[in-house]
């Protein structure tokens, strides 16, 4: 297996040295694209990249070289984004709300403006989840239980000042309740804690509801309309809580990457997202495809910077 790959690699070595000299700085280099994932292998970002790769290969004739640079909830990777090569051969996944909230502490090693987004391709909406045999059957019962004993309900989530943490804080504020947020590393650990009855509930995304179907009950999802995978699960809006949000994922390039290359990448990701089979796989997995390309990104980033400044106050990140 290794030799097969090596053989291909040696052939690629020659192809690359020839192509490398010919390619101008205005187009994507004719080789595999280095795709840096700031999270652990097997997570949402990684699975999405793995599903994108075959479509990308069909469109461009090249694949991804996926690298994992983990730590600090993604900050370790994003702090190094602008030191990477700018020929368009390297890009990095990024997530919201992370890139808005982390820099507020002033210690994240990067500013939101340092991230140069190329495309945002998906949303995983927040979801409030309990175990299937939990006594809490509905969002009303959840709120009632929290009101009866403030702080006694424990809710697992991934990380501090993360998307899950934002969801917990926003919902508690909107519903006027108090719960205890218990951060874990990684979705797997939170699901274990939920199924093992270590915690009463879990803030995560619709994706967990899909993966753990039958073992968990999704109480509500933070979407405008119900998710096709959960036709029976209400949205928070239906229940009178105005919460439509989640984690968004996209790709960014180092500052200095030429504009035509960015537009080309953006167009490629638009085409990947438009692929019907890919789109269906995303929806089946609980994701919501999003299309925010180069044209819409400046306005999008400005709007979210404003919005998360408010949430930063709620979390106590900004005074």
């Amino acid at each position: 297996m290794m030799t097969h790959r090596l053989g291909r690699a040696v052939a690629a070595l020659f192809a690359f040295t020839l192509a490398g000299t010919a390619a101008s700085a205005q187009t994507l280099p004719a080789r595999d694209l280095t795709y840096i994932i700031p999270f652990n292998p097997g997570g949402e970002s990684d699975v999405t990249a793995r599903l994108q790769e075959p479509v990308y290969r069909r469109l461009t004739g090249h694949g991804f070289v996926i690298q994992y640079k983990t730590g600090g909830g993604g900050a370790a990777a994003w702090a190094q984004l602008n030191g990477l090569p700018t020929d368009g051969g390297t890009m990095m996944g990024f997530n919201t709300p992370h890139i808005f909230l982390q820099p507020m502490s002033g210690k994240a090693g990067y500013r939101t403006a340092d991230i140069n987004p190329v495309y945002i391709f998906q949303l995983t909406p927040h979801a409030l989840i309990v175990a299937a045999d939990s006594p809490i059957k509905s969002i009303e019962e959840y709120v009632a239980a929290a009101k009866a004993k403030p702080g006694a309900i424990t809710v697992a989530g991934t990380g501090t000042h993360s998307a899950n943490h934002v969801a917990q804080q926003s919902f508690d504020q909107a519903a006027g309740i108090r719960t205890t947020y218990v951060p874990f590393t990684g979705t797997g650990a939170t699901v274990t804690a939920l199924l093992g009855k270590q915690v009463a509930a879990l803030w995560n995304f619709t994706t967990v509801g899909v993966e753990q179907k039958g073992k968990v009950r999704v109480l509500a999802v933070a979407m405008e309309q119900r998710h096709p995978q959960f036709p029976d699960v209400p949205t928070f809006r239906e229940k009178g809580v105005d919460m439509v949000d989640g984690a968004m994922r996209g790709v960014a390039v180092p500052a200095g990457t030429p504009d035509p290359v960015r537009r080309q990448l953006s167009e490629t990701f638009r085409q990947i997202n438009a692929d019907p089979a890919f789109r269906q796989k995303m929806i089946d997995g609980g994701y919501v495809p999003l299309d925010v390309g180069q044209d819409k990104l400046p306005a999008f980033m400005a709007e979210h910077t404003r919005r998360y400044a408010e949430i930063g106050k709620l979390l106590g990140l900004v005074k």
């Binding site: 900050a75 370790a76 702090a79 502490s105 994240a108 501090t160 000042h161 590393t185």
Partner: peptide, 18 residues
Amino acid sequence: VVGGDVRFTFGLPGLLGG
């Protein structure tokens, strides 16, 4: 992980992830 504080990194971004 709990608290989200940045600890003992000497201000180096390379140590943010531990």
